[in-house]
Computed example of a mutant assay.
Amino acid sequence: MVFPNLKFEDFLHPRPKPTGIDVQCKLQHFAIITYAIDPACFNDIIPPRFKLDTIEYQGKEQVLMSVVPFINVDFSSAVFPFPNFSMGQTDYRVYVIDQHTQERCVWFLGTTLDSWTLIVPRYLWQLPWQSAVFNFECHQDEYGYYKQYKMQTQSAWANAELQLTQSKDDPWNYTGFPDLESHLVYLTHPLAGFYHRRDGKLGTYRVWHDRLQLKPAQLLHAKFDLLDRLNWVSFEDQLNPYSVLIEPINEFTIYLPPQVIQ
């Protein structure tokens, strides 16, 4: 299979004006730890409307799945004066194509959140979000590279441990893509997310952000209970990710409320 060339110029667009309860936030210590997985793992999860956005990797058709931890800082209304919140979060997502629109997007397998505000997405909007307690210990050098990136999550649904380090010499890996830009568009620029709501219905929401500026890093340790429990990636294989990327901070707009697709 040949993966198409993707160009940021075809995906970047001005920010749609926020209204209502739309949210503006900065995501600090934003990391994307990605694994190449057998697409069959998701046969019973992804609805027929979507197809997995696969690549050829190590002689097989594979789909990429990412663990995305970060700290929400300055989480607040994008429209009205409102208190700011800070909270740890990790998204578990796999990359798909919406066959109704041909848009490249992500399927959210679930999210952990460290905040009392979880009651809104979990119970009001029925998002597949779970309670967690986070601890980040991150230190950067004078050039902004991470001398230490440690994250630990305590959660009944998805305990996690992660340790990364970074230098200017860390190599890029974009095997399976025609070039680095295609790889970065795929991993960093899906603006629509879909998921099974807690009531079983199909839900979606959209975000906007400018081009992200992630750089490669090295994984020293990872232990994601969810990936091992569901037989997606064993603890042993979690130590050999497809790629690891970090950006110290970026800015997102989240368009709310999420929508239910009938």
Rank of each mutant, 00 (worst) to 15 (best):
I71W: 06
I71R: 02
I71D: 04
N72L: 06
N72I: 13
N72Q: 09
N72F: 11
N72P: 02
V73D: 02
V73A: 00
V73Y: 08
V73K: 05
D74A: 12
D74F: 15
D74P: 00
F75E: 00
F75N: 03
F75A: 03
S76Y: 08
S76D: 00
S76W: 10
S76F: 11
S76G: 07
S76Q: 14
S77F: 09
S77Y: 05
S77R: 01
A78G: 13
A78K: 04
A78H: 06
A78C: 08
A78F: 13
A78T: 09
V79T: 11
V79M: 06
V79D: 02
F80D: 01
F80R: 08
P81Q: 04
P81K: 10
P81C: 04
P81T: 00
F82P: 00
F82V: 01
F82R: 01
F82W: 12
F82Y: 14
P83L: 03
N84Q: 15
N84H: 15
N84W: 14
F85E: 05
F85D: 03
S86T: 15
M87N: 11
M87F: 14
M87E: 13
M87A: 15
G88K: 05
G88D: 06
G88Y: 01
G88Q: 01
Q89I: 09
Q89P: 02
Q89E: 15
T90L: 08
T90M: 09
D91C: 03
D91K: 08
D91W: 01
Y92R: 01
Y92I: 00
Y92Q: 01
Y92M: 01
R93K: 09
R93Y: 05
R93L: 02
R93A: 07
V94H: 08
V94N: 10
V94C: 08
V94W: 09
Y95V: 00
Y95L: 00
Y95E: 04
V96A: 04
V96N: 04
I97M: 12
I97Q: 06
I97K: 10
D98Y: 07
Q99F: 10
Q99E: 15
Q99L: 14
Q99D: 13
H100E: 12
H100G: 14
H100N: 15
H100L: 15
T101L: 14
T101K: 13
T101C: 10
T101I: 15
T101F: 14
Q102S: 12
Q102T: 07
Q102D: 12
Q102C: 11
Q102G: 13
Q102V: 05
E103M: 11
E103G: 07
E103I: 08
E103F: 11
E103H: 15
E103R: 13
R104E: 09
R104M: 12
R104C: 13
C105Q: 05
C105K: 04
C105S: 08
C105P: 09
V106E: 07
V106F: 06
V106S: 09
W107S: 05
W107R: 07
W107Y: 11
W107A: 04
W107Q: 05
F108R: 05
F108S: 12
F108K: 05
L109Y: 02
L109H: 04
L109K: 03
L109P: 01
G110Y: 07
G110P: 06
T111A: 07
T111V: 07
T111M: 11
T111E: 10
